[in-house]
Amino acid sequence: MDDRLRIIIAKPGLDGHDRGAKVVARALRDAGHEVIYTGLRRTPEEIVRTVIDEDADFLGLSSLSGAHNYLIPKIIELLIESDCGDVIVFAGGIIPEKDRSDLFSKGVRAIFGPGTSSVQMSEFVETASKRKVESLPVGCGEETDWQWN
């Protein structure tokens, strides 16, 4: 089977910083995946429409604005409503330690902060994808305690 994955890197909300998102997109491309970058300031509805149209396996959300506690759960909620609960969601940017367990419990499977290596990111993508192939729960709408980190 082809192990090439389709991954969306999205910037939700009013946050104009995307150096990190672009580096991640490039690293995942170099790992052999097809990466779609949405550009800045997308609404949760726009991001979900992109996930559907592009038939994404993964959605990476980058947030540096502090609005992650609102935006990320909102996007996951819309994904589940749209029958996309099998999509694997990860996050990155500036997400304080104290907010993380809540995001994990809402369906985020990995959170990458500053200093993450691209190797770690690829390992996460491969491990999570393997879970999906083995029919183990890993999507944002699936019941599991599994998380990276």
């Binding site: 491309r29 097809e34 779609i36 970058y37 550009g39």
Partner: peptide, 11 residues
């Protein structure tokens, strides 16, 4: 790598 960066949505 066989990968691709698909960036038309940005523009």
């Amino acid at each position: 790598s066989g990968g691709a960066l698909l960036g038309d949505r940005i523009r």
